[in-house]
Simulated assay, not measured.
Amino acid sequence: MGVKLRQQHSKILKGRKQKIDRRLKRKQWEDQERPMFKGRNIHYEVAEKIQAIRCGGIGAIHQMVQRSGLVEEINAKVKLLKVHVPYHESDHVLNIAYNILVGGMRLEDIELNRNNEGYLNAVGAQRIPDPTTAGDFTRRFTPEDIGSLMESINTVRSRVWAEGRKEKWKEALIDVDGTIAGTYGECKGGMNLSHKGIWGYAPLIVSFANTKEVLYLENHPGNVASHDGSVKWIDRAIEVVKPYAEEICIREDTDFSLTGNFDRWSERVDFVFGMDARAVLIKRAGELPEEAWNALVRKPRYAVKTQQRQKPENRKEELVKEKGYKNIRLTGERVAEFEYQPGKCEKICVGKELERGKRREGAI
């Protein structure tokens, strides 16, 4: 896009914004005789050449994908097709990814994009795979192929970080957690009943909190423990982020306190893991002197720009009191530190005991 054209577009957008600002400007209204939704004559026209799509940014995203080299990287590392008639591996991967980006919820929604000429033109494709073909492609993947696909994405990610950042992150935060992906299907392979009574899957997600990017993902049946098989993905995530960060901190909940790896990880990164309030930890916390405990002051979720709003009455709490139900409320938070050495560690960790009212939680 030329400089003059960009200036022209900026002028048009600025003018439209000013018109909206004038229409929405605060003023003292008088009593109106007619409703605001008055209605007016409107004309619909079908242009012969100009096409509009509801996902206008998909073209810009596809240009970014091409310029970053992601297409070539996928085709080089993911080998699922012996011949390409007419689609390559990257065509199938982008077809499914773009379907989600434009609001699709199922593979069947690809058919909407497939019959949208504006969408096809935006991604520069004569045609795209239909939902059945897309489903057949996903069934070709083995766990090793999925790993290759994630590594191809991370290779391009590292290239973008290297070219786009002038300095390293001072502290890179890697989050590891599991979630529950429910499904309404009854014939889905690998699904199971989770501890919450939801049929579906329990994917493990390793993400880069600084940019909210998912580095690795592994799908599990719904009844599998969230930390199952997480060590190898944590190690891989460290390798991806290490060249671009001065320090790395891994954050996980109690399920991921894999103490057998603490010594090895401590040589390369910092970590904050939750620990279950076991009897030995509760005893240690109970033996601490009162002066060891300090009030925990948390940062506010947001800054009040005008004045603090008055909170409405909590109707739920009123009903609980009226009916005489047990009412558990957070009365305060205190924190204390002490040294603790897990059985599988040679090094001593610093433990923090958090007291919420009468409930205690541990972190290392």
Results as ranks from 00 to 15, higher is better:
residue 93 V to P: 01
residue 126 Q to L: 08
residue 169 W to D: 06
residue 109 D to W: 05
residue 95 N to A: 07
residue 131 P to E: 13
residue 106 R to V: 04
residue 136 D to E: 13
residue 105 M to W: 09
residue 137 F to H: 00
residue 120 L to Q: 05
residue 106 R to G: 10
residue 62 H to R: 06
residue 148 S to T: 11
residue 139 R to D: 14
residue 68 S to C: 10
residue 54 R to S: 15
residue 129 P to W: 10
residue 170 K to M: 01
residue 46 V to S: 12
residue 112 L to W: 09
residue 142 T to G: 00
residue 121 N to S: 13
residue 118 G to E: 12
residue 156 V to L: 07
residue 157 R to K: 15
residue 76 A to R: 14
residue 64 M to H: 15
residue 79 K to L: 11
residue 49 K to S: 14
residue 71 V to E: 00
residue 171 E to S: 03
residue 173 L to P: 05
residue 153 I to W: 11
residue 135 G to T: 07
residue 82 K to R: 14
residue 126 Q to Y: 13
residue 52 A to M: 12
residue 56 G to I: 11
residue 143 P to N: 10
residue 134 A to C: 15
residue 93 V to N: 04
residue 128 I to Y: 06
residue 64 M to D: 03
residue 96 I to V: 07
residue 53 I to Q: 08
residue 92 H to R: 04
residue 122 A to M: 13
residue 104 G to Y: 04
residue 97 A to F: 15
residue 68 S to V: 00
residue 162 A to R: 14
residue 113 N to Y: 09
residue 168 K to G: 03
residue 113 N to D: 12
residue 71 V to A: 00
residue 160 V to I: 14
residue 67 R to E: 15
residue 161 W to G: 03
residue 143 P to L: 04
residue 75 N to C: 02
residue 97 A to P: 03
residue 145 D to Q: 03
residue 91 D to A: 02
residue 48 E to V: 08
residue 46 V to D: 05
residue 51 Q to L: 07
